[in-house]
Simulated assay, not measured.
Amino acid sequence: MSTVSLIGGGWSAPELYAAFVAESAGEIACVVIDEGDGADQFERWSAALRAAGDCRPAPVLVPVGEHLDVAALGDAGGLLVCGGLTPAYAAAVTPVASDLRRWLEDRPYCGFSAGAAIAGEQAVVGGWTVNGRPLIPEDAGEDLGEVTVVDGLALVPFLVDVHAGQWGTVPRLIESVRVSGVPGLAVDEDTAVTVAAGQVRVSGRGHAHLVRPGEDGAVAVTRYHAGQVVPVG
């Protein structure tokens, strides 16, 4: 597989897409879960991609409740999975994970917010409570109550949470890491982590927060900024 870029959300840093756009070399398939305004939502990412470089964004709208048809991606040079309600993206895209990984064998992947959150083998799709106890703000729960982890795309070997600094989601990732035993990264808005050539590197205007499991349910949290390599492995 080529490069995997995971953006934590935000609209102030179109430069985060530049390397992905260059590697895609032309048409970029943009998967948007369509809740009735999919075409309008697509235009937001199309504008961000075009601001980052010469490319041809192409909408792939998936109605809520349906699965992505990988054949609809055609011969595009790269794939952007966009943002919205993370459980809806997981329900639409992860059931075709094996077919999607085959399509991505020689193409780059970029995930924005929800598209980033579902990239791991397991995906943190939302929730704001643990055993009914509030953990993060309810508005960040993605319409779920309990913190929920489901099967992901298995594009990266770690959990991903997003809008870290802005929505306060680091505690949710800590709980997910503690339960799963798998390390994770919580990514700020206007920030990306890029996985390429065996390295995980941070870029953008915020931070990536590495959560590593320890003994007896303990975890360690370390913050990384642009230009730093994150030792996830």
Results as ranks from 00 to 15, higher is better:
Arg101Trp: 04
Arg101Met: 08
Arg101Cys: 10
Arg102Ile: 15
Arg102Thr: 15
Trp103Val: 14
Leu104Trp: 01
Leu104Ser: 06
Glu105His: 13
Glu105Gly: 08
Glu105Gln: 15
Glu105Cys: 12
Asp106Pro: 04
Tyr109Pro: 10
Tyr109His: 09
Tyr109Arg: 10
Cys110Thr: 13
Cys110Pro: 11
Phe112Ala: 07
Phe112Leu: 12
Ser113Trp: 00
Gly115Trp: 08
Gly115Met: 11
Ala116Thr: 06
Ala117Pro: 05
Ile118Pro: 06
Ile118Met: 04
Ile118Lys: 02
Ala119Ile: 04
Ala119His: 07
Gly120Lys: 00
Gly120Arg: 08
Gly120Thr: 09
Gly120Tyr: 07
Glu121Gly: 15
Ala123His: 05
Ala123Thr: 07
Val124Ile: 13
Val124Lys: 00
Val124Glu: 03
Val125Trp: 02
Val125Ala: 01
Gly127Met: 11
Val130Tyr: 07
Val130Lys: 14
Asn131His: 15
Gly132Asn: 08
Arg133Tyr: 02
Arg133Pro: 00
Leu135Val: 14
Leu135Lys: 09
Ile136Phe: 00
Pro137Ala: 12
Glu138Gly: 06
Glu138Thr: 12
Asp139Pro: 03
Ala140Cys: 06
Gly141Ala: 08
Glu142Leu: 00
Glu142His: 01
Leu144Gln: 09
Leu144Arg: 10
Gly145Ile: 09
Glu146Val: 02
Glu146Lys: 09
Val147Ser: 03
Thr148Ser: 11
Val150Asp: 10
Asp151Gly: 13
Leu153Arg: 08
Ala154Lys: 09
Val156Gly: 00
Pro157Phe: 05
Pro157Cys: 08
Phe158Ile: 00
Phe158Trp: 15
Leu159Ala: 06
Leu159Tyr: 05
Val160Tyr: 01
Asp161Tyr: 11
Asp161Phe: 11
Val162Asn: 05
His163Tyr: 11
His163Gln: 13
His163Val: 13
Ala164Thr: 13
Ala164Phe: 02
Gly165Trp: 01
Trp167Gly: 05
Gly168Asp: 11
Thr169Trp: 02
Pro171Asn: 11
Arg172Val: 12
Leu173His: 07
Ile174Pro: 01
Ile174Phe: 01
Glu175Asn: 00
Ser176Met: 07
Ser176Lys: 01
Arg178Glu: 12
Arg178Val: 09
